[in-house]
Write a protein that binds this DNA or RNA. Structure first.
Lengths: 266, 266
DNA sequence: CGGCCGCTTGAGGTTTTTCAACCTAGGTGG
DNA sequence: CCACCTAGGTTGAAAAACCTCAAGCGGCCG
């Protein structure tokens, strides 16, 4: 673990060094930021000359570290992250996955230190909003402020959805819920809700769902066997969204009707 | 239990007497609000004449309903709530418990409709902040704004902690984590971290933790058998916080050393 | 080309769920 | 005042689900 962290730090600093140099790729205007935040018509009144740093984060490196002083708020511009919470004994739990338009680091506002770490699942880019400048920014551009507030609210709604996913007792139902939720989030990002490309490995999914990674494999096979899914490595196609949702709803294996037969046969 | 009821009754009657008559009991000044929000020195610059409604919520009644238009933001003043998410099929999941200083309804900012419901676990009081007035309020009193932001951040941190609790595989570890977290939150409210009074029933806890309610009973007995806990109905005393934390850390029953013997013996 | 990592599959053992019964406390109505 | 009823909680036994350990396979990077 220590090794990992050292490595990550190394990459981090490298990025930081790199990023101060190439100006055009590493900045973003206020209007573009408003667009990213998704404020409908957020551009209005947002024509200030402010520009915000865009930081590149290499795959596998940590964007921010649990316990470190919370200097920045990040908004994912491209790529994807997992946010993880490390227990005292070193065990890590994957709390959530984040991608475009997701806010990372807001938890740092509570105690001035980040409560979670964030690791890039692929080469990614984030917009950097210094906490110190945040209050002034919000004061100055109410449209940007309300857009940010909505994103925070979305994070909270999302957290509730995660709790809902975890509450499913049966493993296949948990996985189904996870996939349904994933599909919905992809649709929100303008991506196809049917063809998903998993950015994370099975172990991360298992960790996130509180299951053994072998169980993920088996449950996936089950869903495929029922004809609801097609899986090829990390490419995933939803064939029967209704069936998947039905499974997601089911408490403890009680999938209605004859679907059990199908499951048995497969 | 009996004690609780007496206490509640006391508050009740007081309320009933005051309720219709003295308007002052159902309002709160800006300074007091800042105090509730916990802004250190939040009183500074907060001497406006604004007053906020305090709403009473009877035990068992719903403060707000999932799907309803989100008109208000609430801050718990006294009492306690459970927030629940109702699935399409009517199944309800207990997402979290909330009490003094917790924010309820912020999720409504995302889609203008509440994403969760909130039900009072006992007779409670909340401060009502109309969403419509919120932006202006925040603009006008930055101290109040930042305090509110911190509370929101706390909600997010709390959501992460819940996910962490749920990630524990073993039932007794989940319960132990829940209790440790509960204890910490009670301490945050100025209550004793050792003597807890459960406001929710076993079924709600079970639902919240994704376990059968029988398992809660059994796991509680296990923790008591190990000498870490004392349980009498809903009154709960933590005898060995270190042991409890050790159990909370353990993955799948592997409590180190000789504690298993104790467990067996009990 | 070899090693490593991610993923899958199998078998056994343990935990947890489920179904059922029983018990207590509190409220209600005769 | 007592009987009754309900909700909440506990306990037991059987069955199902999941985790662990172990092995095998395939792709990818060095």
């Amino acid at each position: 673990m220590a090794i990992v962290h050292c490595l990550d730090r190394g990459i981090d600093t490298h990025r930081l060094l790199c990023h101060s140099r190439c100006a055009d790729a590493s900045q973003i205007g206020l209007g573009e930021l408003a667009g990213l935040l998704g404020g409908a018509g957020g551009g209005a009144g947002c024509n200030g000359g402010d520009r915000f740093a865009v930081q590149r984060v290499a795959r596998g490196s940590t964007l921010l570290l649990q316990g470190a002083p919370a200097h920045n708020l990040y908004i994912v511009h491209s790529g994807s992250f997992k946010s993880i919470k490390t227990a005292e004994d070193g065990y890590e739990h994957v709390l959530a996955f984040a991608w475009r338009r997701d806010v990372i680091g807001y938890d740092g506002l509570y105690r001035e230190h980040y409560a979670f770490s964030a690791v890039a699942l692929e080469d990614s880019r984030v917009v950097v909003l210094p906490m110190s400048a945040l209050a002034a920014l919000r004061q100055q551009w109410p449209a940007l402020d309300s857009a940010l507030q909505r994103l925070i609210a979305r994070q909270i709604v999302h957290a509730g959805e995660i709790a809902e996913v975890m509450s499913a007792v049966a493993a296949d139902a948990r996985l189904a819920r996870f996939l349904v939720q994933l599909s919905a989030r992809m649709a929100e990002c303008g991506q196809s809700p049917r063809r998903l490309l998993l950015r994370m490995n099975r172990r991360d999914i298992a960790n996130h769902l509180g299951l053994a990674h072998e169980t993920i494999s088996r449950s996936l096979r089950l869903l495929v066997g029922r004809g609801w899914l097609r899986v090829a490595n990390r490419e995933l196609e939803i064939l029967d969204a209704a069936g998947l949702r039905r499974c997601a709803r089911s408490t403890r294996g009680a999938v209605d009707d004859g679907e059990r037969m199908l499951a048995r046969a497969a």
